[in-house]
Simulated scan of single mutants.
Amino acid sequence: MTVISARGLRKEFTVRVKVGRLRRDRRTVAAVDGVDLAIERGEMVGYIGPNGAGKSTTLKMLTGVLTPTAGDISVCGLSPVRQRTRLARRIGVVFGQRSQLWWDLPLRESFELLRHIYRVPPAEHAARLLRCRALLDLDEFLDTPVRQLSLGQRMRGELTAALLHGPEVLFLDEPTIGLDVVSKQAVRGFLAELGATGDVTLMLTTHDLADIEKLCRRLLVIDHGRVVHDGTIEALHARYGSRRRVVVELESPAAPPEVIGATLVTVTPLRFEYDLTGATAGELLVRLAGLPIRDVSIVEPDIEDVVARLYTGVPVTDAP
């Protein structure tokens, strides 16, 4: 079942541009320019792009905050702008730099206020809060005023607040921005478990590509308002020429053999590296069995490098 659908989605803004020393002209800029989306129930989708690509604008249209200039859009079978109040009961939203919690109230009381706002039955609220308390370790700061929470604690509170009314779709905009390593791991682990149930559809925008790699099978890349990639991370790697690399360290100098399906990219007397272009790591190691090997390591392709190539338009044949 498709829960998020958009066709020809477009959002224009009018900006004033300086022309000469004293004059300014109005100019129309398309922040989102013909985006098509179809996201099924239970999917975990990463939505990434450079600054100004149109990520946040898309999310604001999907949640009813902004009215599209053109195009058709549906979330949970509702029109986000015309039926915004009804939609709010069926979606959750987490913006990394904005809060839906009450600054001077203890976290527990913020959750209770949200129960009344969304009119959640007490038993349902208690069950969902209990699950979030266990998965996000909330108990130690439930009675702490929000203003006294660390950034990591507040983000765990924001995630809980977005889920207490049982949304069908969860929109996440930079949910791990500014968090330390431990807090990031806690948030990622929670989202991975949430997505594994298939009960909630997640759409995640972030500049931290580790979030995408750990959470999302499907990746949407937007640039200059248009979707330039829609598929798996593996497909992105294949399209832009990134390969797994096998690094071989030797006890004594030896000549590296040629291996079908592997490209030799670096050679020194005691070390050489292969890019796997068709062979598996196991097949390569079988061919290397007679060498005086001290150590072997496999380096996974760096998604940040792949996405950088995509943004700059470097084709696969020119990739290093």
Rank of each mutant, 00 (worst) to 15 (best):
T57Y: 01
A70G: 12
V81D: 02
V248R: 13
Q83P: 00
K184M: 04
Q153T: 15
T277P: 03
D305H: 03
G152T: 09
A308Y: 15
K55F: 09
E213H: 10
A289T: 14
R23T: 15
L276Y: 02
D199H: 14
I212E: 02
I39F: 00
D199F: 01
T263L: 15
T144F: 02
E43W: 00
G282L: 10
D295W: 02
D104F: 02
D230S: 00
A127M: 09
P106A: 14
L130R: 13
L163C: 08
D25V: 13
V316A: 04
G52Y: 00
A238K: 13
P106R: 10
E258L: 13
L159V: 05
V227D: 02
L179P: 06
P269D: 15
D143N: 14
V286M: 03
D104Q: 05
P315C: 04
G189N: 13
G49P: 02
D318I: 02
D137T: 05
K184E: 00
R271C: 00
K55E: 05
L219T: 06
T85Q: 06
L270E: 13
R245M: 03
A262F: 08
D302A: 09
L87W: 01
R89M: 08
L310Q: 11
A88T: 10
V265A: 10
T14M: 07
E249L: 11
R226F: 04
T205R: 03
R115A: 08
V65Q: 15
Q153A: 08
R287E: 13
G241N: 03
G71R: 01
D302G: 06
K60H: 10
L130S: 15
R244K: 04
T14R: 02
H207T: 12
A281H: 01
V299Q: 12
V314Y: 12
V3M: 06
I39W: 00
M1G: 09
W102A: 00
I73W: 01
D72K: 03
P175R: 03
H224W: 06
R27K: 11
R86V: 05
H237D: 09
A235Q: 15
G166R: 09
D223I: 07
A289L: 12
D318P: 01
A38D: 13
V3L: 07
I260Y: 10
L270Q: 14
L114S: 07
A38P: 05
L285S: 04
A123R: 13
L172S: 02
R147D: 08
A196I: 09
M203L: 13
M1V: 10
V187K: 08
A126R: 12
L149P: 06
L105S: 05
G241C: 04
E168R: 14
S56K: 07
V35D: 03
T67P: 07
L149S: 14
E124I: 10
